[in-house]
Computed example of a mutant assay.
Amino acid sequence: MTRRHVLTGAGSGIGLALAHRLAGRGDELVLLARSEARAAELARTFPQAQLLVADLADPGTLNGVGRLVDGPVDSVVHVAGVVDLAPVERLRLAEWEEQLTVNLTAPAVLTREMLPHVRAGRGTVVFVNSSAGLVAHADWSAYAASKSGLRSLADALRAEEAEHGVRVSTVYPSRTATPMQEKVHGQEGRDYDASRWLSPEAVADTILHVVDLPAGATIPDVTLRPVAPRPGS
């Protein structure tokens, strides 16, 4: 039986790696795109996918997207996120609000929209979080707050949906070699070396493991780190 997955962040990094893995094995994809232009780009890469246009930075655009999906869904995987580093004394309101909106509010709204489909498929909701959701460091207050909130969202959803057979998992990757990580290095004033970090494919394969667990089993939380310690990480 063909499986169906709803993904955010499929345009790059972990989301792109995961979308390729799922499409490569013949699963159906429902991909979120922030604009018609972005949807056209994703359609060229994943021509069989269903594209839903909604901007995570404007969660109101997610209202009603659940009605655009027909039938059961095996997973909803929240990958998309934004980050802007700044100490609290220089943190701009717009940066704070954007990170909370994209990283926390939008996943909550999208999950609500897709829950009837996930319940019908007795599927899994996966929140791709961050090590920053477990420990907050200097200059990471807004991002860490959004990811800590995402952890709480997952915990509450897990308790609420167990009776419906819905599994909820949070994946906490440490630094991963993605365009977002390259941006972070620029903000930190550090040279970027992708070989030092987790690969997007390693994180994608972990998500697949979580999604593919046998019925009756679940992994609520999983943390990923590179095998070797990374100096200065």
Results as ranks from 00 to 15, higher is better:
residue 1 M to S: 14
residue 2 T to Y: 04
residue 2 T to R: 15
residue 6 V to D: 00
residue 6 V to Y: 15
residue 9 G to T: 09
residue 11 G to D: 06
residue 13 G to I: 11
residue 14 I to N: 02
residue 14 I to W: 08
residue 15 G to S: 03
residue 18 L to E: 09
residue 18 L to M: 08
residue 21 R to I: 02
residue 24 G to R: 06
residue 24 G to H: 07
residue 29 L to K: 11
residue 29 L to N: 05
residue 30 V to R: 03
residue 32 L to N: 05
residue 35 S to F: 04
residue 38 R to Y: 00
residue 39 A to F: 02
residue 40 A to H: 13
residue 44 R to A: 04
residue 44 R to M: 03
residue 47 P to A: 15
residue 60 G to V: 07
residue 63 N to A: 15
residue 63 N to L: 14
residue 66 G to C: 06
residue 67 R to Y: 08
residue 72 P to W: 11
residue 73 V to R: 11
residue 75 S to A: 14
residue 75 S to Y: 04
residue 76 V to Q: 12
residue 80 A to W: 12
residue 80 A to M: 07
residue 81 G to H: 02
residue 82 V to F: 06
residue 83 V to P: 01
residue 84 D to Y: 13
residue 86 A to R: 14
residue 98 E to W: 09
residue 99 Q to N: 06
residue 101 T to A: 01
residue 109 V to G: 10
residue 109 V to C: 05
residue 109 V to T: 03
residue 110 L to A: 04
residue 110 L to I: 06
residue 111 T to D: 02
residue 113 E to G: 05
residue 113 E to P: 13
residue 114 M to Y: 08
residue 116 P to K: 01
residue 119 R to I: 10
residue 122 R to P: 04
residue 122 R to W: 04
residue 122 R to N: 09
residue 123 G to L: 12
residue 123 G to I: 12
residue 130 S to L: 02
residue 130 S to Y: 03
residue 131 S to K: 11
residue 132 A to K: 07
residue 134 L to F: 03
residue 140 W to Y: 14
residue 143 Y to V: 01
residue 143 Y to K: 13
residue 147 K to Q: 07
residue 152 S to V: 09
residue 156 A to R: 13
residue 156 A to E: 06
residue 162 A to M: 03
residue 167 R to M: 03
residue 168 V to S: 09
residue 169 S to K: 12
residue 171 V to T: 03
residue 172 Y to F: 15
residue 174 S to H: 07
residue 174 S to A: 11
residue 177 A to N: 03
residue 177 A to L: 06
residue 182 E to S: 08
residue 184 V to I: 15
residue 186 G to Y: 03
residue 187 Q to L: 09
residue 191 D to A: 03
residue 191 D to K: 15
residue 193 D to T: 07
residue 194 A to V: 09
residue 195 S to K: 14
residue 197 W to C: 04
residue 197 W to D: 10
residue 198 L to I: 05
residue 203 V to L: 13
residue 211 V to D: 07
residue 212 D to H: 05
residue 212 D to E: 13
residue 213 L to Q: 15
residue 213 L to Y: 13
residue 213 L to I: 05
residue 213 L to P: 05
residue 214 P to G: 02
residue 216 G to I: 00
residue 217 A to K: 14
residue 220 P to Y: 02
residue 221 D to T: 12
residue 223 T to F: 10
residue 224 L to R: 00
residue 227 V to K: 11
residue 228 A to N: 07
residue 228 A to R: 15
residue 233 S to G: 05
